[in-house]
């Protein structure tokens, strides 16, 4: 009788390895500190920040956010497909995720080039120091994300996969990807929209 499972209440589980969650929470704290400094200095010199912020194109920011949210949705589907044993569908979702991420990266480079052409750089003023630092560090996280997606592809293609381990690794990778996504959600709001 002990192996009776209540079907109405699915078993609760930690998605992926707990170590990744420790990393996510730590990384979030580090970024919260960056954001805190940014908002403090922004509130102290609102005119400078407003004037510099006006040079950003909100539409590019919105589009990039939607693209990254699409990539997160795709990774979430990948986790579910792999859990159901639909490895080909999971593999397809990983490639869709990578395609959205590539669009994000290309647009970001385009935006940087546009701002630099307008005469802005890392040392132009406080706003652009934060802008290039935060978007740059996020860019690096996204590049690491490509390596993470590579791990997922490798795992899904490996003929010797052990299902339990495979699923845990994919969930761990997905957790990293979503973290990069929600950090962008915050960076976008703070750099492009706050007043």
């Amino acid at each position: 009788m002990t192996d009776l499972v209540d079907k109405s209440k699915p078993a609760r589980f930690v998605p992926g390895q707990p170590d990744m969650w420790a990393f996510v929470l730590f990384e979030t704290l580090v970024f919260t500190a960056y954001f805190g400094f940014y908002l403090f200095y922004r509130a102290r010199s609102p005119e400078l920040f407003l004037h510099s912020q006006a040079q950003l194109d909100l539409r590019i920011g919105v589009f990039n956010t939607l693209v990254l949210l699409l990539s997160s949705w795709s990774v979430a589907r990948c986790v579910q497909s792999s859990r159901a044993g639909a490895y080909r569908a999971a593999l397809r979702d990983v490639f869709i995720t990578a395609a959205f991420a590539a669009v994000f990266l290309l647009l970001k480079v385009f935006e940087w080039a546009r701002l630099v052409r307008m005469g802005n750089g890392l040392d132009s003023n406080d706003f652009f120091t934060y802008y290039f630092f935060l978007t740059g560090i996020h860019f690096v996280h996204l590049l690491i994300g490509f390596v993470v997606l590579g791990v997922v592809v490798y795992q899904l293609r490996s003929p010797a996969r052990r299902e339990q381990e495979l699923q845990e690794n994919i969930e761990t990778c997905a957790t990293y990807w979503h973290t990069v996504d929600f950090l962008w959600v915050l960076i976008f709001a703070l750099l492009y929209v706050v007043r």
Partner: peptide, 25 residues
């Protein structure tokens, strides 16, 4: 308002995309 909206989005990503909804309390 912008900060609150962003944090609501973060919580939705945690709960739904990251499957915290089905995770231990």
């Amino acid at each position: 308002s912008v900060i609150v909206i962003a944090l609501v989005k973060v919580r939705i990503i945690f709960r739904e995309f990251m499957e915290v909804r089905q995770a231990p309390a």
